[in-house]
Amino acid sequence: MGIELELHSERPGARKRAPGATLLRESHQHGEALARALGTLELDPSGKLSWIDPYGDTLFNEQEAQVVCAEAAALAERCTDEQRKAALLDLAALLDECAATPGSYVRCVGD
């Protein structure tokens, strides 16, 4: 089980475009470590990071991405496992890019 990450220039699937037409960047290298990190680390239940579904897709707009980015970075600081920490930092970087890109979305694709 893993969670793949995608950064889109606009809401994916919102318009009839070729698949992947809105895709700006994606990350697959930390999928399993990210799923383990989100499954084993203590998440703030009131935060948005806990929204990520390891079995389905989760979408964050640029405003939500800003909040989730801070949560992921804070969680990475507390993480002692290097692979999980790298996965959380990768997620934070993608969310940060989304927060800085008007109209963009991050999609977390679960297994």
Rank of each mutant, 00 (worst) to 15 (best):
M1E: 14
G2Y: 11
G2Q: 11
I3W: 04
E6Y: 15
E6G: 03
H8Y: 12
R11T: 00
R15Y: 14
R15H: 08
R15S: 11
A18Y: 08
P19K: 05
L23N: 02
S27P: 07
H28A: 06
H28D: 05
Q29F: 07
E32C: 03
E32V: 09
R36Y: 04
L38E: 05
L38W: 10
G39V: 11
T40S: 14
E42G: 10
E42K: 11
E42L: 14
D44N: 15
P45D: 15
S46N: 13
G47E: 04
K48A: 14
K48L: 15
D53P: 02
Y55V: 02
Y55M: 04
D57V: 02
T58H: 07
L59D: 11
L59P: 02
F60L: 04
N61M: 08
E62Q: 14
A65G: 08
Q66G: 07
V67E: 12
V67T: 08
V67L: 13
V68G: 01
C69W: 04
C69D: 03
A72N: 01
A73I: 08
L75V: 07
L75Y: 11
R78H: 10
D81Q: 09
D81V: 04
E82M: 09
K85L: 03
D90Q: 15
D90L: 12
L91N: 01
A93G: 08
L95Y: 06
E97T: 13
C98T: 10
C98L: 08
A100Y: 05
G103Y: 13
Y105M: 02
V106S: 00
R107C: 05
R107S: 04
C108M: 05
C108I: 06
G110W: 06
